[in-house]
């Protein structure tokens, strides 16, 4: 929605990562990542297994603390922010975990209502109406709200998780492999749902994915994790890259098929 020209002005970056280093024990996962995410874009994060895509996501949302460098999300640096400042920023983003991560002892509607109950003081009736709105927004049938997560299919769990992530109308949406485990039709439907919501709600989306179709369909820019570094570009610019992994990824049989399909 922000039709800003190509070099985004500095204040338009909602996430800024500088010199990020993460390690597990002696194993270095990321060695000096520098990139930023612009307001209103969909950024896809790709990389081979074990290159730390999910780790990057978890580091940005503060579930893992980095071993070096700085991350600024919506102008707030986790390392320097106070508890209350961090809480306030947390309410401005939503996260969809790989399998939805719905609380299994509650109904779908109760799951979605949690952020409202914890972060707002709205009357109960309004919370219920807003919950129903979210359920409709992600394309779930109304009766899904009364079910418990174990009664839902994988795709419905993801939609329910998305509804919970979107509860407080976040500015940034983090998605961890949103289409993994879905059939091609379900995956395409989920892609277009995310694109549609992103445009309607003016979201900035950061999604980790394996799915070349998703990248092709909805991502404005793509970040490739490679050799402990990150490379960010559009689909067009990455197609010109000569790095063997990138070539194998985009010019391999699946990559070619997805790109040919546009």
């Amino acid at each position: 929605m922000s039709d800003s020209p190509a070099p985004a002005p500095a204040e338009d970056a909602v996430i800024r990562v500088r010199g990020l280093v993460t390690r597990f024990g002696r194993q270095t996962i990321h060695d000096g990542l520098n990139f930023s995410v612009r307001r209103g874009e969909v950024l896809g994060v790709v990389g081979g297994s074990g290159t730390g895509k999910s780790v990057l996501l978890r580091t940005i949302i503060g579930l893992k603390s980095p071993e070096g460098g700085g991350i600024e999300v919506l102008g707030c640096d986790r390392a320097r922010a106070g508890e209350s400042e961090w809480r306030a920023v947390q309410a401005r983003w939503g996260v969809l975990f790989q399998n939805g991560a719905l609380f299994s002892s509650m109904t779908v509607a109760e799951n979605i209502a949690i952020p409202f109950r914890e972060h707002t003081d709205l009357p109960l009736a309004l919370i219920e109406e807003l919950t129903a709105t979210k359920i409709a927004l992600v394309g779930l049938p109304p009766e899904a709200g009364r079910k418990i997560p174990s009664e839902l299919s994988g795709g419905m769990k993801k939609r329910a998780g998305l509804a919970r992530a979107l509860a407080l109308d976040p500015e940034i949406l983090f998605l961890d492999e949103p289409t993994a485990g879905l059939d091609p039709i379900g995956a395409a439907a989920f892609d277009s749902l995310i694109r549609n919501l992103q445009q309607t709600l003016g979201l900035t989306v950061v999604m980790v994915t394996h799915d070349v179709d998703s990248l092709q369909a909805i991502c404005d820019r793509i970040a490739v994790l490679i050799d402990k570094r990150i490379m960010v570009g559009t689909m067009e610019s990455l197609l010109q890259e000569s790095h063997p992994w990138i070539r194998a990824y985009f010019h391999g049989p699946r990559g070619r098929a997805a790109i040919a399909g546009r």
Binding site: T107, E128, P142, T200
Partner: peptide, 21 residues
């Protein structure tokens, strides 16, 4: 236009308010 789109989207899914028992 963005607000109109959002309103339209909300109107589409409305009328289904029986999420809680």
């Amino acid at each position: 236009p963005a607000q109109a789109r959002l309103l339209e989207r909300i109107t589409e899914g409305a009328g289904a308010e029986a999420a809680f028992d």
